[in-house]
């Protein structure tokens, strides 16, 4: 029991299949929106649905939901640094 706890949470098959179905549905929505609608809407879909899909993979498939707060904080820090770099670079090029 002690060992099982240390080795992490057992994610039920049902949860994994549900997440997979949700990922497929989100992909279908993303493809539909970007082919059928105006560019502004497809960029909005790209910026919302894509991180949502990545989040589902991170939280359920990669077990991040069941990890310690420390590891979660590290992941958010790395993503934060990446977003910060992208933001700063955009600030730089847009005021040249």
């Amino acid at each position: 029991m002690e060992h099982a706890e240390e080795q992490g949470h057992v994610v039920p098959y049902r949860t994994l299949v549900k997440v997979w179905l949700l990922l497929l549905i989100l992909t279908a929505v993303l493809v539909f929106v970007s082919t059928a609608f105006h560019e502004a809407l497809s960029v909005a879909a790209l910026l919302t649905l894509t991180p949502l899909k990545a989040g589902l993979v991170f939280f359920y498939f990669m077990h991040l939901k069941y990890e310690r707060p420390f590891l979660k904080a590290m992941v958010f820090m790395v993503l934060g640094v990446l977003i910060l770099f992208i933001g700063l670079t955009f600030l730089d090029i847009s005021y040249r």
Binding site: L30, V31, T50, K53
Partner: peptide, 30 residues
């Protein structure tokens, strides 16, 4: 069943490869 860390780590790597593709699809193909 009591020592599966290697499998979990390979799984983590494979999921990240999937996440990167999740971003490549809309950036390039769409």
């Amino acid at each position: 069943g009591t020592d599966f860390n290697k499998l979990e780590n390979v799984g983590l790597y494979w999921h990240l490869v999937d996440v990167i593709w999740i971003f490549l699809l809309p950036l390039l193909y769409l």
